[in-house]
Design a protein around this nucleic acid. Structure first.
Lengths: 105, 105
DNA sequence: CTTTTATATAAGTAAATAATTATATAATTG
DNA sequence: CAATTATATAATTATTTACTTATATAAAAG
């Protein structure tokens, strides 16, 4: 084949997973630290860390350290073709409201 | 979690594969029969048939039989959020031009 | 400076998915 | 209707990917 869809497929693979797409839906609401995400998704910390690493490597999120916490936020400026999907994500406001208030403190 | 991204993930999984996304890129140009797709993607007929079955089950393509050939075409009317990705797909015109002219005859 | 807390990484296991090989069905043609 | 062509399905194998468990690092607090 002359043209290839491969780079696009790599990005879509990052979205095509329940855990990662939920993380993106969460980060769409606001930036979050790892412990917040672990608290909401009810899985292990290494599992979330590994998904975040993939999202970071794929250029979908960026991280900023604030003392001991590392905050992740969406970075989709260079991928406007994902806008439709971003809008299709369900609201995570209810889950964020129920966050353990002792997390990140 | 209250809300879930699951149905969206199922659709994204269909896109997040080289073979399937290339099929979609081809069908974006025009409807095609299975032998055309096999010819271009250089893989086996059962492999293509099984990918087409998934795409059909996921509601991304529809089929219409024309005597012994079964033509597949895109069906994305009900998924406007995929428009951005559709536009991001590379052109497959070159590959279609090189199609074996004895195919589907 | 030792302990705790937050996060990352590595190694191994389990599960999901794609590709292959073999066979079946359905329409077409001689 | 037997042979051919187009496509589908089933079973198996191979590959990829997510998850788990164990361990490492880095900052903060006592």
């Amino acid at each position: 084949m002359t043209q290839t869809v491969e780079p696009l497929v790599e990005t879509l693979k990052l979205l095509a997973d329940n855990t990662r797409l939920t993380i993106l839906a969460l980060l769409k609401e606001k930036e979050m630290c790892v412990c917040d995400i672990v608290d909401i998704l009810q899985t292990t910390q290494p599992n979330i860390s590994q998904h975040l690493r993939k999202l970071k490597k794929g250029g979908l999120v960026i991280e900023t350290r604030k003392s001991q916490w590392i905050y992740y936020s969406l970075y989709l400026e260079d991928k406007p073709y994902l806008e439709g999907i971003l809008e299709e994500l369900p609201s995570m406001k209810d889950d964020i409201r129920k966050l353990n208030p002792d997390c990140c403190k």
